[in-house]
Computed example of a mutant assay.
Amino acid sequence: MKVLDLQCGRQHTFEGWFGSEEDFQSQLARSLVECPVCGDTGILKRLSAPRLNLGATQAPDKPAGESRSVAAVPAPNAAQQAAFLQAVRHVLANTEDVGAQFAEEARKIHYGEADERNIRGQATAEETAELLEEGIAVMPLPIPKALKGPLQ
Protein backbone atom coordinates (compact mmCIF):
# COMPACT_ATOMS: atom_id res chain seq x y z
CA MET A 1 0.00 0.00 0.00
CA LYS A 2 1.34 3.43 -0.96
CA VAL A 3 0.24 6.42 1.11
CA LEU A 4 0.73 9.76 -0.63
CA ASP A 5 0.42 13.35 0.52
CA LEU A 6 -1.63 15.15 -2.13
CA GLN A 7 -2.71 18.73 -2.81
CA CYS A 8 -5.33 20.23 -5.10
CA GLY A 9 -5.09 23.45 -7.09
CA ARG A 10 -6.84 25.31 -4.26
CA GLN A 11 -4.12 24.27 -1.79
CA HIS A 12 -6.23 21.74 0.15
CA THR A 13 -4.01 18.94 1.38
CA PHE A 14 -5.09 15.36 1.93
CA GLU A 15 -3.82 11.81 2.01
CA GLY A 16 -4.43 9.19 -0.68
CA TRP A 17 -3.92 5.43 -0.46
CA PHE A 18 -3.04 3.48 -3.58
CA GLY A 19 -1.95 -0.05 -4.40
CA SER A 20 1.16 1.23 -6.20
CA GLU A 21 2.65 4.28 -7.92
CA GLU A 22 1.27 2.94 -11.21
CA ASP A 23 -2.21 2.70 -9.65
CA PHE A 24 -1.98 6.34 -8.52
CA GLN A 25 -0.76 7.55 -11.94
CA SER A 26 -3.51 5.57 -13.72
CA GLN A 27 -6.26 7.01 -11.51
CA LEU A 28 -4.78 10.51 -11.81
CA ALA A 29 -4.72 10.28 -15.64
CA ARG A 30 -8.42 9.28 -15.65
CA SER A 31 -9.34 12.17 -13.27
CA LEU A 32 -10.45 9.70 -10.60
CA VAL A 33 -8.39 11.35 -7.86
CA GLU A 34 -10.18 14.40 -6.49
CA CYS A 35 -9.95 16.70 -3.52
CA PRO A 36 -12.33 15.59 -0.74
CA VAL A 37 -12.93 19.23 0.19
CA CYS A 38 -13.68 20.93 -3.14
CA GLY A 39 -13.78 18.15 -5.76
CA ASP A 40 -10.86 19.58 -7.78
CA THR A 41 -9.13 16.95 -9.96
CA GLY A 42 -5.99 19.04 -10.53
CA ILE A 43 -4.00 17.02 -8.01
CA LEU A 44 -0.28 17.23 -7.29
CA LYS A 45 1.78 14.83 -5.24
CA ARG A 46 3.51 16.63 -2.35
CA LEU A 47 6.94 15.82 -1.07
CA SER A 48 6.78 13.52 1.90
CA ALA A 49 9.26 11.60 3.95
CA PRO A 50 8.88 7.84 3.98
CA ARG A 51 7.84 6.33 7.28
CA LEU A 52 9.49 3.11 8.29
CA ASN A 53 8.10 1.17 11.21
CA LEU A 54 11.02 -0.92 12.36
CA GLY A 55 9.86 -1.64 15.87
CA ALA A 56 9.96 0.20 19.16
CA THR A 57 13.64 1.03 19.18
CA GLN A 58 14.78 4.22 20.86
CA ALA A 59 17.28 6.70 19.51
CA PRO A 60 20.63 6.66 21.29
CA ASP A 61 21.05 9.29 23.98
CA LYS A 62 22.98 12.40 22.99
CA PRO A 63 25.67 13.75 25.27
CA ALA A 64 24.53 16.55 27.60
CA GLY A 65 24.53 19.97 26.01
CA GLU A 66 24.35 18.66 22.43
CA SER A 67 21.38 20.07 20.55
CA ARG A 68 18.86 18.01 18.64
CA SER A 69 17.16 19.10 15.44
CA VAL A 70 13.39 18.92 15.67
CA ALA A 71 10.61 20.14 13.41
CA ALA A 72 6.86 20.12 13.55
CA VAL A 73 5.34 20.98 10.19
CA PRO A 74 1.59 20.42 10.05
CA ALA A 75 -0.14 20.32 6.68
CA PRO A 76 -1.26 23.82 5.72
CA ASN A 77 -4.88 24.53 6.61
CA ALA A 78 -5.42 21.02 7.99
CA ALA A 79 -7.37 22.32 11.00
CA GLN A 80 -9.57 24.55 8.83
CA GLN A 81 -10.24 21.73 6.38
CA ALA A 82 -11.24 19.40 9.21
CA ALA A 83 -13.49 22.07 10.75
CA PHE A 84 -15.14 22.75 7.38
CA LEU A 85 -15.82 19.05 6.75
CA GLN A 86 -17.21 18.67 10.28
CA ALA A 87 -19.52 21.66 9.71
CA VAL A 88 -20.75 20.24 6.39
CA ARG A 89 -21.42 16.85 8.01
CA HIS A 90 -23.40 18.65 10.74
CA VAL A 91 -25.48 20.50 8.14
CA LEU A 92 -26.16 17.27 6.23
CA ALA A 93 -27.22 15.45 9.38
CA ASN A 94 -29.48 18.26 10.63
CA THR A 95 -31.28 19.48 7.51
CA GLU A 96 -33.88 18.18 5.09
CA ASP A 97 -32.80 17.99 1.44
CA VAL A 98 -35.50 19.68 -0.67
CA GLY A 99 -33.42 19.54 -3.84
CA ALA A 100 -34.27 21.93 -6.67
CA GLN A 101 -37.32 23.18 -4.75
CA PHE A 102 -35.07 25.03 -2.29
CA ALA A 103 -36.07 28.62 -3.22
CA GLU A 104 -39.78 27.77 -3.23
CA GLU A 105 -39.60 25.89 0.08
CA ALA A 106 -37.50 28.62 1.73
CA ARG A 107 -40.17 31.18 0.77
CA LYS A 108 -42.97 28.97 2.13
CA ILE A 109 -41.15 28.65 5.46
CA HIS A 110 -40.33 32.37 5.59
CA TYR A 111 -43.94 33.42 4.92
CA GLY A 112 -45.44 30.84 7.31
CA GLU A 113 -46.95 28.63 4.60
CA ALA A 114 -44.87 25.60 5.67
CA ASP A 115 -43.56 24.31 8.99
CA GLU A 116 -40.32 25.94 10.10
CA ARG A 117 -37.40 23.55 9.73
CA ASN A 118 -33.80 23.44 8.55
CA ILE A 119 -33.53 22.77 4.82
CA ARG A 120 -30.87 22.48 2.14
CA GLY A 121 -31.00 22.13 -1.62
CA GLN A 122 -29.94 23.70 -4.89
CA ALA A 123 -30.60 27.27 -6.02
CA THR A 124 -29.20 29.37 -8.82
CA ALA A 125 -27.19 32.51 -8.07
CA GLU A 126 -30.21 34.54 -9.22
CA GLU A 127 -32.61 32.66 -6.90
CA THR A 128 -30.17 33.11 -4.01
CA ALA A 129 -29.95 36.87 -4.64
CA GLU A 130 -33.77 37.13 -4.79
CA LEU A 131 -34.15 35.25 -1.51
CA LEU A 132 -31.63 37.55 0.18
CA GLU A 133 -33.45 40.64 -1.20
CA GLU A 134 -36.67 39.31 0.36
CA GLY A 135 -34.92 39.07 3.73
CA ILE A 136 -34.69 35.27 3.68
CA ALA A 137 -31.41 34.17 5.25
CA VAL A 138 -29.66 31.69 2.96
CA MET A 139 -26.03 30.76 2.51
CA PRO A 140 -24.29 28.92 -0.33
CA LEU A 141 -22.54 25.82 0.99
CA PRO A 142 -20.37 23.73 -1.33
CA ILE A 143 -20.77 20.08 -0.40
CA PRO A 144 -17.84 17.87 -1.43
CA LYS A 145 -18.81 14.87 -3.58
CA ALA A 146 -17.32 12.52 -1.01
CA LEU A 147 -19.96 13.65 1.53
CA LYS A 148 -22.94 13.45 -0.83
CA GLY A 149 -23.14 9.68 -0.56
CA PRO A 150 -23.96 7.70 2.58
CA LEU A 151 -22.20 9.06 5.64
CA GLN A 152 -19.56 6.64 6.86
Rank of each mutant, 00 (worst) to 15 (best):
G16A: 02
G16L: 00
W17D: 03
S20L: 04
E21Y: 03
E22T: 03
D23V: 02
F24K: 10
Q25I: 04
R30D: 14
E34A: 12
V37F: 11
C38D: 12
D40R: 01
T41C: 12
T41E: 14
G42I: 05
I43S: 03
L44K: 13
L44A: 15
L44Q: 14
L44G: 12
R46W: 03
L47K: 00
R51G: 01
N53E: 13
N53Y: 13
G55D: 10
T57P: 00
Q58L: 14
Q58C: 12
A59R: 10
D61A: 14
K62Q: 11
G65P: 01
E66P: 00
R68D: 09
S69K: 06
S69E: 10
A71P: 01
A71E: 06
A71L: 10
A71R: 07
A72F: 10
A72L: 12
A75F: 12
A75G: 05
A79Q: 12
A82C: 05
A82K: 09
A82N: 09
A83L: 14
F84Y: 15
L85K: 07
Q86T: 12
Q86G: 10
Q86M: 09
V91G: 00
L92S: 09
N94I: 02
T95V: 09
E96N: 12
E96S: 09
V98T: 08
V98A: 01
A100G: 05
A100D: 11
A100R: 06
Q101R: 09
F102H: 04
A103T: 14
E104H: 14
E105G: 03
E105P: 09
A106T: 08
K108T: 02
I109K: 14
I109D: 13
G112R: 10
E116V: 06
E116P: 04
E116R: 15
R117G: 09
R117M: 11
I119D: 04
R120T: 07
G121I: 07
Q122I: 13
Q122L: 11
A123K: 09
A125M: 05
T128F: 04
